[in-house]
Design a protein around this nucleic acid. Structure first.
Length: 932
RNA sequence: GCCCCGGUGGUGGAAUCGGUAGACACGCAGGACUUAAAAUCCUGUUCGCCGCAACGCGAGUGCGGGUUCGACCCCCGCCCGGGGCACCA
């Protein structure tokens, strides 16, 4: 079986006993504070950060540590390179699951969270990470969320000056209002609001506060939520299925509730521009800029036929204005009630009711076309032609103006809508439109387009915009897809707001009254009217003649700034001292999953910009470089039960039967071969299972799926570490493939990495004779093997290509092994470069070979180039691009010399078959190609 | 529907700038050591063909075209898989 220390074979201490070694060094590193980091302005810094986890009750599976191992290796590497490395870890410990768990099991969130963190920590510790745990942060600790609340107040106390392009204090805004009113500073919450200085001074306190609220970066407004009356609570989009709550199946409707928001839209341009200054993958930048969704177009007013009102649409294609066949407005559009005529009331209102029962997500996923005619018409701004106005859920109230001009010949959805309802389609693009499918081209020459006739569409754009503006029926407009971020939750387990409502005014608490602590609460019932559970605590709620805000902040509040707190975690006078943030600065490398591509990254980028604008920190992008680790998938094993029986048929034979699939726990399978005994004992209903074997064994099918309990394909890192050791586990996770790539977990391949470590051990240690390293001077060949390896490891580690660096270690060791090299001056350098990957073993061998001090603080070896100089190369020689042979030629050879050497070769002559070569392509140090 | 990322041996993957496709491993096959096993070591391993081997030939990086002396890599058109989404006008 596998190596076990319990056998007590004392004379085997020279064997690689990873369990003892790893335990020993983990304790020693802890005792000696090896990973403690100080803010030392005299040394170059490097800040390596993992996205901190939500401590879920399920614990870690083998996929979680992937990014942590990568960043750990990088941190250790940078330390060897002489950097002062900040590499902290903490917990994003507020969140919905703990609250749900409390409701179901009666365990307070604070307690279950504490337990989960303890488990997480134990699991992390076994893998040997170099975190400085003295800097740990937890978003649910009052000492932490005190500063989350403080930053919220900074947001609340600021507005965005569009002229300066930055946040400023509200006090400066009121000073401006007193001087000149708001003429120069458009109100972002209400574009039409205008007042003079005199008017401002005449407003009462309530009016002034309402106006200021429309400017604040953190503000209170009204927004639609998924409201479930039966549960008395608000539901997330994914808790709503087919218009009813996932839990209980109760009806869910859209309802307006008071909500806090962050005015992130004011930062849209800065968030876009900032992308050019950071190293994120192109796809990541693209996702963010798609989310921000800046577009240039026009707002155009369509007058209502027989009324004064008009419908304002937003379009990015004003050049298609003469192709408008109908207008579509969102069901929530405020004009809808005025537009519905009596003759169409029944169908239109039935449609509105149907839409109201659907969550936003469902409406977005809907492929069926639906809508209703209002009975009203608008007039075309240029021709005066009447245009029917329809309602449809495919137009969203929150985007643009909530109304569109439909041009079916140029827009796919408009076209489908027109076809579905039998509406006529005007063709303004001639042969570009084939009558069956819309064509969104900008290259067509316009027809049936009045004063635009004969123009190419992309040129017509400016012409029509000028005309719209001249006639006052429209104007150029820059639009953003991004909406302000909802910042309140009707929940308990989150940061309380430091806000007290008095006479309808939100009064911020002074900073010295922070934190507003989350009060203990035994039972987590929703409060009345959709408020959170905190509303059920009258003593807490009523405060200083007002009522506290009883909603709490969302999950992303604490995670938007945690990277700053690590720099100065114990500070109870500031969120982070300026000295600390000036020293550590931006996160040099940030490692985490793509699932946070838009949410978390955009929010923390915004918070950083605000803190920068207000002078609290000296940089306005938090993360200089971002690496997204891929997900590790589970490789499920599947057994096939013949339908209606207890007989299972092996994968190769299953096609002859009608079968049902059963997910088999991966621990009962060796490769794909099922341990049928273990399977029978797995569950009572399988006790009498019988098996149809092939080649004497039962083979399972396999399928790559999400690693999850319900597929029985979860592999726990603890088990792997117990069996092979942390060093093997670390290296194997890296060896699996590129960090960024999604990949399946298969424990089988781990043997190779484990053998590598054992083989390295044996380079130092003989089973009986003990240490066998020699003091002899190495040969040139040995130096060359070593330095070739070190150079490659260095390159690969810098570019986060850890799978190739692991293979390079194997290549290097194989070469030294073939050279029978046991020389200490070679091997000690090998240990240093390997130590970021396999720290426990390297530390042990470092000590065993008589070194004092930790290997973690050695300098990274300098590659001596002279051992790597090559004088000749074995060139591939190709004839017409097909490689035919290999010839060793001096690297100094000129084109003419190479031609002469190559063409004189008899086997080259054979391939030429007497023909004269047209030319010889010679790329020095690459290849030679003879073209015939 | 839209956006993004992928597709290379039996498996994970390598090829960093357009230059020897399959590094390094796993697995498998054969051998050595051993009473036996474990461990370790050695050899072979993309596919097909020439009876075996050597030598050699042909095909080959999802499919079909193209550019190039030369394409896993660049371009055009498809197919398949995975992920994301706020149907973005």
């Amino acid at each position: 079986m596998h190596h076990s220390p319990d056998q007590g074979i004392i004379d085997n201490i020279m064997e690689y006993q990873f369990r003892d070694i790893e335990r020993k060094w983990q304790e020693r590193w802890k005792d000696q504070g090896t990973y403690r980091v100080t803010n030392d302005p005299g040394r170059p810094k490097c800040y390596v950060l993992d996205m901190f986890p939500y401590p879920s009750g399920a614990g870690l599976h083998v996929g979680h540590p992937l990014g942590y191992i990568a960043s750990d290796i990088y941190s250790r590497y940078k330390r060897l390179k002489g950097f002062n490395v900040l590499h902290p870890m903490g917990y994003d410990s507020f969140g919905l699951p703990a609250e749900q768990y409390a409701i179901e099991h009666g365990i307070p969130p604070a307690v279950s969270t504490e337990n989960n963190i303890r488990n997480f920590r134990a699991q992390l510790d076994r893998i040997g990470f170099c975190y400085d745990w003295s800097r740990e942060v937890r978003t649910s600790d009052a000492s932490y969320y005190r500063w989350t609340q403080w930053i919220f107040l900074e947001l609340f106390g600021s507005w965005f000056d569009r002229q300066a392009g930055k946040a400023r204090r509200i006090a400066e805004l009121t000073a401006i209002f007193e001087q000149e009113g708001n003429a120069s500073y458009v109100c972002p919450g209400d574009r039409t609001l205008r007042f003079s200085a005199a008017e401002w001074i005449s407003f009462d306190a309530r009016r002034r506060e309402d106006i200021l609220m429309d400017y604040r970066l953190a503000y209170c407004g009204y927004g639609e939520v998924n409201w479930c009356e039966a549960l008395g609570t608000v539901l997330a989009n994914d808790e709503v299925v087919n218009g009813v709550s996932e839990r209980g199946g109760h009806p869910v409707v859209r309802k307006k509730l008071r909500q806090w928001y962050l005015r992130i839209t004011e930062y849209a341009d800065r968030l876009l521009e900032g992308l050019q200054t950071v190293e994120f993958s192109e796809s990541m930048k693209e996702m963010q800029s798609n989310w921000i969704g800046k577009s240039y177009g026009a707002e155009i007013d369509f007058k209502l036929k027989g009324g004064d009102a008009h419908i304002r649409v937003y379009t990015t294609r004003p050049d298609t204005i003469f192709g408008v066949d109908f207008l579509v407005i969102a069901p929530e559009h405020p004009l809808v009630p005025h537009l519905i005529t009596d003759s169409h009331r029944t169908t239109a209102e039935a449609y509105l009711e149907y839409v109201n029962s659907r969550s936003e997500r469902e409406r977005m996923a809907e492929k069926k076309i639906s809508g209703a005619f209002t009975g009203s018409h608008c007039l075309h701004p240029f021709t005066g032609q009447p245009i029917p106005v329809w309602i449809s859920e495919y137009v969203l109230a929150g985007y643009g103006t909530g109304a569109i001009m439909a041009v079916p010949c140029g827009d796919e959805r408009d076209h489908k809508f027109a076809q579905h309802f039998g509406l006529p389609v005007t063709n303004i693009i001639g042969s570009y439109y084939d009558g069956t499918e819309a064509n969104p081209t900008k290259d067509a020459v316009l027809q049936h387009s009045d004063f635009l006739d004969g123009m190419v569409m992309r040129d017509a754009m400016a012409v029509v915009l000028d005309r719209l503006e001249a006639e006052g029926c429209g104007k150029r407009h820059v639009n953003y897809k991004m909406r302000d971020a909802a910042f309140s939750r009707q929940r308990y387990w989150g940061e309380p707001f430091p806000i007290v409502w008095k006479d309808g005014i939100a009064v911020p608490l002074p900073a010295d009254q922070l934190p507003v602590e989350l009060p203990p609460l035994d039972e987590l019932h929703p409060g009345p009217g959709g408020e959170g559970p905190l509303a059920n605590l009258p003593d807490w709620k009523h405060y200083e003649g007002g009522v506290r805000e009883v909603n709490t902040m969302p999950g992303y509040a604490g995670s938007s700034w945690y990277f700053l707190r690590y720099m100065d975690p114990g500070n109870d006078a500031e969120f982070c001292s300026r000295a600390a943030s000036d020293y550590w600065g931006q996160v040099d490398i940030y490692v985490g999953g793509t699932e946070h591509a838009v949410g978390h990254l955009l929010y923390s980028r915004m918070w950083t910009k605000v803190l920068f604008d207000l002078g609290h920190i000296g940089f306005d992008e938090p993360f200089r470089r971002l690496v997204n680790q891929g997900k590790i998938g589970g490789d499920s094993r599947i057994a096939y039960r013949i339908r209606g029986t207890h007989q299972f048929v092996s994968a190769g034979l299953k096609d002859a039967y009608e079968t049902d699939e059963i997910h088999v726990d991966v621990s009962m399978v060796d490769g794909v071969v099922l341990d049928t005994e273990a399977f029978r004992n797995w569950r009572p209903d399988l006790l009498d299972a019988t098996f149809l074997l092939e080649d004497g064994v039962y083979r399972c099918g396999n399928r790559l799926e999400k690693m999850s309990k319900r597929y029985h394909n979860v592999v726990n890192p603890d088990e792997v570490v117990e069996r092979y050791g942390a060093d093997t586990f670390r290296m194997y996770e890296m060896f699996l493939g590129p960090v960024e790539q999604d990949k399946p977990w298969d424990t089988k391949g781990i043997e190779g990495v484990h053998r590598f470590l054992k083989k390295l051990w044996r380079m130092f240690m003989h089973e009986e004779r003990g240490l066998i390293v020699s003091q002899e001077s190495p040969t040139d060949a040995e130096w060359k093997a070593l330095y070739k390896m070190i150079r490659k490891i260095e390159e690969d580690t810098e570019r986060f290509s850890f799978n190739t660096s692991v293979s390079q270690f194997m290549i290097g060791l194989n070469e030294l092994y073939d050279l029978k090299c046991q020389k200490i001056s070679i091997l000690e350098q090998f240990l240093i470069v390997l130590s970021p990957y396999a720290p426990h073993m390297c530390e042990e061998l470092w000590q065993a070979t008589g070194h004092s001090g930790s290997i973690l603080d050695q300098p990274w070896p300098a590659v001596e180039e002279r051992y790597l100089v090559e004088t000749s190369k074995a060139y591939p020689v190709a004839v017409n691009g097909r490689t035919r042979m290999e010839m060793t030629i001096s690297l100094q050879a000129t084109q003419a010399e190479v031609e002469a050497i190559v063409l004189a070769d008899p086997s080259v002559q054979k391939w030429l078959e007497g023909k004269t070569p047209k030319k010889v392509v010679y790329v020095p140090n690459r290849m030679i190609n003879i073209v015939v």
